[in-house]
């Protein structure tokens, strides 16, 4: 994977945009997922994930080829999401409650609403509750929990992405786990 990515990066550096499109295809789901779990909102997640790729493209000449590309890309995306959370204005909660559709949350909007089996509805509700609990975590715990348990990255990779010592990453994961344990203990 990394070998192919590096070939593509070299093509991009020579000016071939199609090669960048291939890179986007390979990572789009992971980056989108990361942004969605960090922000809890599809519109925002899409905007941030798009922005992450655009920034990666514009700054590709600064990418250190010795580094793992995904680490660099996740760093851009994570920083964008953290900035976004810090700047977040209360009126930006677009589809937590889309205007005029009170009670319809994101999941019911994207799901084929007419005939969901009972257990699927339940599982969607559960998904949503878990997402809400992730969103309650302060961003410094949220980012490590998402990288560790949703993106399934190693402590070393997380420490590279966040540019933090492994010890700090560990401490944050521990705090995040403690918080989630409390929040989710009633299930």
């Amino acid at each position: 994977m990394e070998v192919i990515i590096k070939q593509r990066i070299n093509q991009v550096l020579k000016g071939d945009q199609n090669a960048f499109g291939e890179i986007v295809e390979l990572y789009k789901d992971k980056v989108f997922q990361l942004c969605f779990r960090m922000l809890g909102n599809r519109h925002e997640a899409e905007d941030m994930a798009q922005e992450a790729f655009v920034r990666a493209y514009v700054n590709i000449h600064r990418f250190n080829i010795q580094m793992k590309f995904s680490t660099w890309l996740y760093r851009i995306a994570t920083n964008l999401c953290i900035d976004r959370i810090r700047k977040k204005k209360p009126d930006y909660f677009l589809d937590a409650e889309v205007a005029g559709t009170e009670g319809l949350n994101m999941y019911s909007l994207i799901a084929d609403d007419s005939a969901l089996p009972e257990d699927e509805v339940e599982s969607l509700e559960l998904q949503e509750t878990i997402q809400d609990e992730i969103l309650k975590l302060p961003e410094k715990y949220r980012s490590v929990i998402v990288l560790k348990y949703i993106e399934e990255l190693s402590l070393k990779e997380i420490s590279d992405i966040l540019d933090l010592p492994i010890g700090t990453v560990k401490t944050r994961i521990h705090r995040g786990r403690e918080a989630l344990r409390k929040q989710l203990s009633n299930f």
């Binding site: 789009k28 789901d29 980056v31 989108f32 997922q33 969605f36 779990r37 899409e46 994930a49 559960l126 998904q127 878990i130 997402q131 992730i134 929990i145 348990y149 949703i150 786990r177 403690e178 989630l180 344990r181 929040q183 989710l184 203990s185 299930f187």
Partner: peptide, 18 residues
């Protein structure tokens, strides 16, 4: 409870980009 919390977080559906 801690292990359960982790399992719940891990169980969240994989969302795909549009």
């Amino acid at each position: 409870d801690m292990k359960k919390a982790i399992a719940l977080v891990q169980s969240t559906a994989r969302i795909k980009a549009p």
